[in-house]
Nucleic acid binder design. Structure first.
Lengths: 119, 119
DNA sequence: ACAAGGTACTTGGCAATACAAAGTACCTTG
DNA sequence: CAAGGTACTTTGTATTGCCAAGTACCTTGT
């Protein structure tokens, strides 16, 4: 995934989705995202998202010391956050449906054009 | 789809996908997008995309008069554009895979939490 | 002839967001 | 006490969707 523009808006929903599974903190979220396949999400990308989600009341924050490093900020999802997550999921699904339809048609045509040329 | 951020990067790929099906022009692309389910894509959104695609060599432009209005700019896809479309499609698919996984897990958990509370 | 409305493209400015880069600071281990 | 991993912050930049307004062509009705 080279195209960082594709992540606009997506990342926020994914972070909210991860936090919805249980209390967690920034540094861990980055490695979670990596496990799901999102490569190279830097700290300068994630932390502003957390700040924004917090400011909007979608997550809440609790500071606590870490067993092996500096203080962590643990985040958990709020009721408003759950609503936002559902809304995001619905918007995402609609976007996907439209895009998939266009791409399927385009790729199908490209393939058959390609086959015709070979014959 | 209220979340316009979700469209970032997506729209360009979709427009390229539509043009790949055959020569077309701006005003028609907007109604195509609408038919696929993208609502309220304004001219101030689409035309800059076309300019960009053209400048990057992904599409080429030909001016011709319209049977019922002012001059049209007809666009068709180039070889580079086809490559870009395939690349976009691949990036999009990867993004989708990661996002779907996270959302499915989150929604599943939300559902079962919900059911437990009812029991 | 003229107004209205649909067609068609252009331009300028704004807001949101991903990201790179650099910085601060804590802790463990050798 | 140096090195390296953990953890969060800040600043600046580029990209992109979108609103608003403008220009201009053409047909149709009065």
């Amino acid at each position: 995934m080279n195209d960082s523009q594709l992540l606009k808006g997506i990342l926020e929903g994914c972070v909210l989705g991860i936090i919805s599974q249980g209390e967690t903190y920034g540094y861990e979220i980055i490695s979670e995202l990596e496990q799901y396949g999102f490569r190279d999400i830097g700290e300068g990308t994630l932390y502003p998202i957390l700040t924004r989600l917090d400011k909007n009341g979608y997550i809440r924050c609790r500071k606590d010391k870490s067993p092996l490093g500096p203080i962590r900020k643990y985040y958990s999802i709020t009721n408003e956050g759950m609503n936002r997550l559902m809304e995001f999921s619905s918007d995402y699904r609609k976007m996907k449906q439209c895009t998939d339809m266009i791409l399927e048609k385009a790729i199908y045509k490209a393939d058959s054009d390609n086959n015709e040329r070979r014959e």
